[in-house]
Design a binder for these strands. Structure first.
Length: 322
RNA sequence: GCACAGGUGGGUGAGUGGUUAAAGCCGGCAGACUGUAAAUCUGCUCCUCCUAGCGGGGUACGAAGGUUCGAAUCCUUCCCUGUGCA
């Protein structure tokens, strides 16, 4: 039925890969479970913070009950005081996809982290990995210099990159400089060499696009609920065990919980601030996903049965198994 | 009832006679994003009318009056809010 959409009609059909993307709280988990149950699916996480162990309440990971409904991968595989990067994730996730394919099951990538999704599907450019020492040096020097210092360095090393990165965007400037220094080449030149995109799958991208107002209502409810469910306690525990260096501690909800624990804000303020942060994040996710190519957009929430029906209608027929 | 403090744009909060349609921050909207991305960064928007745009007009700082060439800024009265004393 969907044969006309194939780009390589003469080769054997590649197996299908379903990708579910959308802003937080749009119901990605619910939709992924519905599809997994219908098509022998296995779920592959693509939410950067959900990869961390012991970050539970603030990450809205699938519950234990939900995880019984289908195999889940790439949750909880990074230690709380360790960190994962987009490139590393892509490597690991590709391995997982191969395994699922070998089992003859349908891989369903679920997540809201745009960069990680791109790394997985399209690949990153082939550049050096991050270098902690180099970054520390850059940051240190930058602190003692007037504003725009890093940008000026990049202008000398890679003018094309400097033109694309705003002078205030320190993290991106540091990465660009790091790439130039470590590779002894310009980052923009390395970009031109392209990247290794994922092959061997036909990809169906399903995008969840609920109405903004309704989404914000859900986000507000969910963020507040995280506090009611013990987010502060969890955060306290993490701080006690790992200190404040654990990467996800500065992410949505955890950041506010930390501020509350330190007495910088009171509880209502922490909740409000967390809600706000979640809303802003959802907005940024939409900005990212909107320009993603080949997305089958579905209006509504992923837990809506009617929307799930529509999602099923988009599934290519030949992949359906009894 | 008396005494202070205060009422500014969606919120907060500057501004105390003219370059103020009104800083900054927040929010809202839009955008960027190539290895810590739930991060980081950018733009627009703060009333209304005309113009494709440049731009131009009107109305605005609790209300009504007044002073002044000119007021959100000074004066009077009124309304409202917070605090202190009763």
């Amino acid at each position: 039925m969907a044969l006309h959409r194939l780009e390589r009609p003469l080769t054997v059909l590649d197996p299908l890969l379903v990708v579910i993307l959308g802003p937080t709280a749009s119901g990605k988990t619910a939709l992924s479970l519905a599809l997994a149950e219908k098509y022998h699916g296995e779920i592959v996480n693509c939410d950067s913070v959900a990869m961390y162990r012991e970050f539970e309440i603030g990450t809205a990971k699938p519950t234990a009950a939900e995880r019984l409904r289908a195999p889940h991968h790439l949750f909880d595989f990074v230690g709380p005081s360790s960190y994962i990067t987009a490139g590393e994730y892509a490597r690991i996730a590709r391995g997982v996809l191969q395994e699922i394919r070998a089992r003859g099951n349908l891989p369903i990538v679920v997540g809201g982290t745009g960069l990680y999704l791109r790394a997985l599907l399209d690949g990153l450019f082939r550049g050096p990995q991050r270098s902690e020492e180099l970054r520390d040096r850059l940051r240190l020097r930058n602190d003692s210099k007037p504003a725009g210092h890093l940008h000026r360095i990049l202008c000398r090393l890679d003018p094309a990159a400097a033109a694309q990165i705003h002078a205030n965007d320190t993290p991106k400037l540091i990465r660009a400089i790091e790439v130039c220094l470590a590779s002894r080449n310009q980052m923009t030149k390395l970009w031109k060499r392209g990247s290794e995109s994922l092959t061997g799958f036909r990809i169906l991208r399903l995008g969840l696009n609920p109405e903004r107002k309704l989404l914000y209502d859900r986000i507000n409810y969910r963020a507040e609920n995280m506090f009611a469910s013990g987010l502060v306690e969890e955060t306290r525990q993490l701080l006690r065990n790992y200190g404040d260096v654990a990467a996800p501690l500065k992410s949505l909800g955890y950041k506010q919980a930390v501020q509350f624990i330190r007495g910088e804000i009171d509880l209502p303020a922490a909740i409000q601030s967390a809600q706000q942060a979640h809303r802003n994040y959802a907005k940024r996710q939409m900005t990212w996903f909107r320009r993603e190519q080949d997305v089958e957009w579905l209006t509504g929430f992923g837990d809506n049965p009617e929307l799930q029906e529509k999602a099923i209608e988009r599934m290519p027929a030949m992949n359906t198994r009894p």
